[in-house]
């Protein structure tokens, strides 16, 4: 049995040690807001937070988490930065197809918390691991600037 804490709730899991967290989230706990993209930590669609640090759930064996705290897209709106990012995302109509966007929001939230006033370069650096095939990058950048200005 493995115990993990997700969005302030404790879960007892009967899974193999090497099961990636993404499988636990989607298939066992039904938290399907986190998406499966490439499966090799290259696209960012499955980004979640571990103690606030953006992490790819598809390459994270559940046994490595220990007592660190997981936050997923379902609960990111409960944080100050997460709520602000979600609000500016809606205002700017950032989303097109939406598949990558939960990962984008998780990455943007972490950026804003670490750096309340990011430059274009800071944004490119922090967001470059999150791929969007609709090409919403320009709107993502604008929305992050707006969230920072409203701080």
């Amino acid at each position: 049995m493995i115990t993990i804490r997700i969005n302030n709730e404790s879960h007892q899991l009967d899974v193999t040690d090497d099961m990636p967290l993404l499988w636990v989230l989607r298939d066992i706990l039904g938290l399907t807001g986190t998406k499966y993209g490439c499966g090799v930590a290259q696209c960012g669609a499955c980004t979640i937070h571990i103690d606030g640090i953006p992490t790819r759930a598809c390459q994270l064996p559940v046994s490595l988490i220990g007592d660190r705290h997981i936050t997923t897209i379902e609960a990111i709106g409960n944080t100050r930065e997460g709520a602000r990012i979600q609000a500016v995302w809606l205002q700017n109509q950032v989303i097109q197809c939406g598949y990558c966007q939960s990962g984008q929001i998780m990455a943007a939230t972490a950026l804003l918390r670490d750096n309340p006033n990011p430059t274009d370069d800071d944004i490119d650096d922090a967001m470059s691991g999150n791929i969007c095939r609709c090409g919403t990058y320009v709107r993502i950048r604008e929305a992050i600037h707006q969230a920072a200005n409203n701080a």
Binding site: A41, C43, G44, T55, R56, L64, D124, D125, S128, G129
Partner: peptide, 22 residues
Amino acid sequence: RHIFQQACMGCHLENGAGRQSD
């Protein structure tokens, strides 16, 4: 640097501390 940020940071992080695992 640009390619590292796109292709490598997902697992290794910019400071090389490792993202998903040690």
